[in-house]
C-alpha cells in the first residue's frame, strides 16, 4: 500500500515542479488579438476533432465531462466557460508555446492544424447553446458548411427524416477503391445522405486501421471513398475485412450499425513460426545438430576411455588374485 502512496506522492510532486508558482497565463496583446484565419467549416471542425482526440484528449479529457487528468494545475475542460473565455488568439498562443505540463505544439503541429483544433473547441460552446435550445445537434456546424447542392437534402433535413440512416459498401476491383455510402430508404427509394462522418477501415487485432482520411464526411451523393493499399498484409488466405462505420467520437450523434465485407485484396500472410528451425536460442530439443553431435561425440569418447581404464585396473586386480590363489 505504502508503495502506491509513494507513487502518488511522486506523481504529485513531479507536477508540482511543473506547476510551481504559476500565476495566470498572460498572453501578449498582439497574440491575443490574432484572428482565426481558417473558416469554421464542418471539415475544419472534423479535422480539429481528430487532432484534439490525438493530441489533447489524454490530458484535457472528453469535452464537457470535466474528466481531464488530475494534474496541478488541472488541464481545463475546453467546453467549460472558463476555457471559452479565451480569445482564439489566446488559445492559439497557448497551444503553440505550452507551459509546464502543457506541451508546446509549435514543432509538431502545423499552424493550420492548431486553428482546426480551435475551430473544434469553439464548436463545443455552440453545441451547448444548440442543445439548450433543443435544436439539431450539429446545426451550428452545418450552417457554415460549404454549399450543398440543392437536389440533395441538407444534412439537418436528412437527420430529422423518418427513414433510418444506413451504410453500404461498394468496391472497384481494379483500382482497389472502396466506397462507403450513407443513405436512407424513403418510399422504396434510396436517398443519399451527405455530411455524415464515415470512416472506412480494415479490421486489425487491437484497433482497426482507418483507410479514409481523418474527419471525412460523405459528399453530396452520400459517398466516402478510400484506396486499399496494395501492400497491406491480410490473413493466410489473403482476406481482409473492410468496415464502414461512424467514427467512435461521433457515434453518439449518428447511430448506425457498421458494415463489414470480406475481400481477398491483401497480401497473403505466410505464417512463419520462428521456433521451427533449430537454433542456439531455441528450446532444448531444438538445438543445432552440429552441437548435439559434437557433444555426444565428446561424451562418448570420454566414457569409452573410462571403460577402457576400468578394464585395465580390473586386469591388475585379476593378475594379483590368480597369483595369490596359485
Amino acid at each position: 500500500m505504502s508503495r502506491k502512496q509513494v507513487f502518488f506522492t511522486f506523481l504529485l510532486s513531479g507536477f508540482v515542479v511543473f506547476g510551481y508558482s504559476q500565476g495566470a497565463w498572460v498572453v501578449p496583446a498582439a497574440d491575443k488579438a490574432k484572428k482565426n484565419p481558417v473558416a469554421s467549416t464542418a471539415e475544419s471542425i472534423g479535422k480539429g476533432k481528430n487532432l484534439y482526440n490525438t493530441h489533447c484528449k489524454s490530458c484535457h479529457g472528453d469535452p464537457g465531462k470535466n474528466n481531464g487528468l488530475p494534474l496541478n494545475p488541472k488541464p481545463t475542460d475546453p467546453a467549460s466557460e472558463q476555457y471559452q473565455k479565451n480569445t482564439d488568439g489566446e488559445i492559439f498562443y497557448k497551444i503553440t508555446n505550452g507551459r509546464g505540463a502543457m506541451p508546446a505544439f509549435k514543432a509538431t503541429l502545423p499552424e493550420q492544424d492548431r486553428w482546426h483544433i480551435i475551430n473544434f473547441v469553439r464548436s463545443l460552446s455552440k453545441k451547448k447553446v444548440a442543445e439548450n435550445t433543443s435544436e439539431p445537434a450539429n446545426q451550428a456546424d452545418t450552417a457554415q458548411a460549404p454549399m450543398i447542392a440543392t437536389e440533395t437534402p441538407s444534412a439537418q433535413d436528412t437527420l430529422m427524416a423518418e427513414g433510418k440512416l444506413r451504410l453500404a459498401l461498394g468496391f472497384e476491383e481494379d483500382s482497389k477503391t472502396i466506397y462507403a455510402r450513407a443513405f436512407r430508404v424513403k418510399g422504396g427509394k434510396t436517398v443519399p445522405v451527405s455530411m455524415v462522418p464515415v470512416e472506412i477501415a480494415v479490421k486489425r487485432y487491437f484497433r482497426d486501421l482507418r483507410l479514409s482520411e481523418a474527419g471525412t464526411v460523405t459528399d453530396e451523393n452520400g459517398y466516402v471513398s478510400a484506396i486499399f493499399p496494395d501492400d497491406l498484409p491480410a490473413d493466410t488466405a489473403g482476406q481482409v475485412v473492410i468496415i464502414a462505420r461512424i467514427p467512435e467520437a461521433e457515434q453518439e450523434q449518428f447511430s448506425v450499425a457498421q458494415v463489414e465485407v470480406t475481400k481477398s485484396w491483401g497480401v497473403k500472410l505466410i505464417p512463419q513460426n520462428m521456433k521451427e528451425a533449430r537454433s542456439l536460442w531455441n528450446d532444448n530439443h531444438k538445438l543445432p545438430l552440429w552441437l548435439l553431435f559434437s557433444y555426444l561425440g565428446a561424451v562418448a569418447g570420454v566414457l569409452v576411455t573410462f571403460a577402457y581404464i576400468l578394464s585395465l585396473i580390473f586386469k591388475i586386480y585379476k593378475i594379483g588374485k590368480s597369483s595369490m590363489n596359485a
Partner: peptide
C-alpha cells in the same frame, strides 16, 4: 587391487 608388483 591385489597388487603383487609383477611386471604385467
Amino acid at each position: 587391487a591385489n597388487w603383487i608388483a609383477v611386471p604385467e
